[in-house]
Design a binder for these strands. Sequence first.
DNA 1: TACCAGGTCTGAC
DNA 2: GTCAGACATGGT
Length: 293
Amino acid sequence: MNKHTGTACGDGLTERICGGEYFDPAATLGSGQMFRYRAKEGGFLVLSGSRACRVFCRGTNVLFRCREEDAEYFYKYFDLSRDYAPIVLRAATCGIPFVAEAAQAGRGIRILNQDPEETIFSFLLSQNNNIPRIRMLISRICGALGEECSFEGERYFAFPSARKLAERGEDFYASLGCGYRAKYIAGTARILAEDSAAGYAALSTEKLREKLLALPGVGPKVADCIALFAYHRAEAFPVDTWIERIYREELGGTLVGREKIAAYFAALFGDAGGYIQQYIFRYERERRSKWRE
DNA sequence: TACCAGGTCTGAC
DNA sequence: GTCAGACATGGT
């Protein structure tokens, strides 16, 4: 897709269309890298920071509609300048059947380029938590502290800035149901109110990881998620409870400790690791949810 | 009731 | 450096 070819559709909105073979909105949004979207009229309302867009499937294509001034943002957000065919091919031919199947099934998943602050606070809430509850907590925080906005007549709340989040303390976030993560939200907000997370983009991956690990509540796994989903460091390979299970049960792995498992995958897949991690993460979750039905 | 969820932190060894 | 247990909450 040429990023400069948009179609104006009135009211200051623009529509852009791209091929759908390597862009499946449902798979991408439901893959656990972002938490603010709503199924809407056969498509999705996607929220990022204070911005909004709608995404629809149109035959074999995907169409997204947003404000003119947000078009470049969402073009980058969905990583539309990247060709995913070689990435899927690499996973599909790696010689590990589970990975190959997952890549085929998840070929439409894209790694998003999300707002760093929103990603940091979202993944602070992710630890020892499940995706529906992470979504609920983020929604409560936005409702409590985010600016009220609207898009095509639909009301939503922006994700609050670190500065705004820093105005409240641990007790406030505990009252929203954040549990023991409340102190991490308050503590990290105080740091990021003074230190720009957007500025971290200029750092090497090693330095970036160092910066992220210095934030309260950010450990190796959360740092890898942030590095991957906000700063697009595709060599990051977050290892959580699901990936650890895949490693043992599907790959027959025997290494102990998530950092060692992450290093194993990083060595195996290199700069395609982050993409492949998402393929296998979603594949396993989908598979398990089908078994439960 | 017990276990699990996109883990991290702390203190003991 | 490694490891066990604690940490909030809600769903199954």
